[in-house]
Design a protein around this nucleic acid. Structure first.
Lengths: 338, 338
DNA sequence: CAGAGGACGTTATACGTAACACTTCCTCCG
DNA sequence: CGGAGGAAGTGTTACGTATAACGTCCTCTG
């Protein structure tokens, strides 16, 4: 019998079933065919059920030297986007018998804590968003297999990268607005140091320059409704050149803030100014008018990230190629008025 | 020297520093005062740094019999609410040297997987939202210390519960609307089996009945913008009794869907109908007009949940009492028109 | 100068599991 | 009738860590 107060071990199960601990391990590990008789196996399973046995994962992990657990490092969960990434990653992981531990890099908790110390699980690998900047220093240097999300393929120290084709998204936005006759752009950029936002800015600028020969003005804001409101209001009340007819936002939340600024300024969307976002969160269709935005498939992102990490762990070559994105045209963009 | 390809162990560090493995454990475990000289301790630390030593957590957990890690079981991350709960829980946990593993119960991945099998970490305790219904069966029966969030204090099998005072929230909404002269209510309820929604419905109904002597109509919808849109539209186009002047939604997302339905029906908020929500997500202020809603302090919720679990783990008595909530009056509610 | 006791370590062990190597019994074939 | 080979297990070990228990010296005191 197990000592009172402690969890039963495989040895307790063995004693209850009248077999050795090794036999219990074989039966419960599903490796008993041809080694243990069916009747004995059933007796072991029965004893395990009876005692409420659950294997000690710390011991198993120590013995096996691997945990079938990976860490997913993401920014603070201020939107549902990385929830989708997690869902995709967890789905693929489950198919391969892996678990995913989610580590949202803490927001406003002083200096970044060490994700490995916090997620006190033993790990086989790491998937990290480049937006979780403050957690990255701890990850570099650790010799765990690493997959980076939304990260510059060059300059990733050879780590595998899985990216959304966000450059194409920016091009689609630019082309859509240019086709509608817009020539004066304001780019409301996220005040976050990440490759994904750099690419958006670059592609947007080059597309506008090469196709229309015009430039765009850029203002930055923290990714929050209030931040975007203030930045937009400031940009549009200042006396800098012609009033833009199109406002390109780095994500939907910024666009929501911009909507509020435009309402305050008495500008109507899309009659006076067109607005676009990126992400296609629930927020995009909650706005009035509904937001034209670049849909990012968060679940596929997570799936591809996890698949790449599994490939690395099993010595295979990860799938190449960026994940396509799609412009969803809704009511917030219209032909530019002469 | 460590075998190539494997991570260095404390024994490798010991060899490099010319001491025993026990000394390494003492030094790095900060228990060396009076047992090891300062110079030797420094030599050990230097060797550890040199080799990039990281303790094997599986081994440590096995040896200590505890992990200083708890599991936070929440519903799928479709809003930022439970991101806030995590932040609060993680903050308190960090102060006590604990880590938090977040387990969002998977959405639409067939039958619920076992959170313990998925989050393959060894755990000291569990905090679970009652909204993660499909994961709960696996948790019951496990003898880990358990704290329930938003769960019926009766009928929780003696598990500690930490709740928002959502009943008071419902009363505040009712009183606010009643004071504005509203008498005909539609309750847009979440189609999710959880104590928190049952309480809202009950408190709302009793308050309306006792104060105004009227009843309210209830329709349910899944917590999504489209679901709420459809349910609201159906409810308001049907021929059932007088048109409501106030629409009480179980959360902000439902309210966002309701806004869309009302726009389609040509009803203006708040002139034709007042609308309220619950949560105070970013969405609430993104809507036009901004939403009158019950603010839930997600971070405090997480903090209190974690504090309660720590109390249980340390044999103390958890703090009693619900967490207060606050009605935030914005532009979506106005005096009922005669 | 005996010996008490502090400073500085080391040796040995256990945590619970998985798996290798081994034993015992039985059957069946040549 | 001898032995090859399969079935049905068991004994033992190692994973890496933390800590209890145990040595040494060396100094200081009475």
């Amino acid at each position: 019998m197990a000592r009172a107060g402690t969890r039963p071990t495989s040895r307790d199960v063995a004693q209850a079933a009248g077999v050795s601990q090794a036999a219990v391990s074989l039966v419960l590990g599903d490796k008993w065919r041809g080694r243990v008789s069916e009747t004995t196996a059933e007796r072991v399973r029965e004893a395990a059920r009876e005692l409420g046995y659950r294997p000690n994962l710390a011991a198993r992990n120590l013995r096996l030297g691997r945990t079938r657990t990976v860490l997913l490092v993401v920014p603070a969960l201020t939107t549902e986007f990385f929830g989708g990434v997690y869902t995709g990653a967890a789905r693929v992981a489950a198919r391969h018998g892996f678990g995913v531990v989610l580590y949202p890099s803490p927001e406003g908790i002083g200096p970044a804590r060490d994700p490995f110390a916090s997620a006190q699980a033993a790990l086989d690998g790491v998937i990290a968003s480049s937006m979780a900047a403050d957690a990255l220093t701890a990850i570099r240097g650790d010799q765990l297999p690493l997959v980076m999300l939304d990260s510059d393929p060059r300059g990733s120290h050879g780590a595998v990268t899985v990216n959304l084709d966000i450059g194409d998204g920016a091009r689609q936005v630019a082309d859509h607005l240019l086709a509608l006759g817009h020539r004066h752009f304001l780019h409301l950029a996220a005040d976050v140091p990440s490759w994904t936002f750099e690419v958006r800015a670059q592609e947007l600028a080059t597309r506008v320059a090469t196709v229309a020969g015009t430039t765009l003005r850029t203002v930055t804001a923290p990714i929050s409704i209030e931040g975007a409101l203030a930045a937009t209001e400031a940009a549009l009340t200042g006396p800098d050149g012609p009033r833009p007819t199109a406002l390109v936002c780095d994500d939907d939340k910024l666009a929501a803030g911009a909507y509020k600024a435009l309402r305050r300024l008495g500008l109507r969307v899309p009659d006076d100014i067109s607005v676009t976002g990126v992400d296609d969160l629930g927020l995009a269709t909650a706005l009035d008018p509904e937001l034209t935005t670049v849909r990012l498939d968060a679940e596929t992102f997570g799936e591809r990230g996890m698949a790449a990490l599994l490939a690395v762990l099993e010595g295979r070559t990860p799938q190449e190629g960026d994940i396509p994105v799609e412009l969803v045209v809704r009511g917030s963009t219209a032909r530019a008025r002469a």
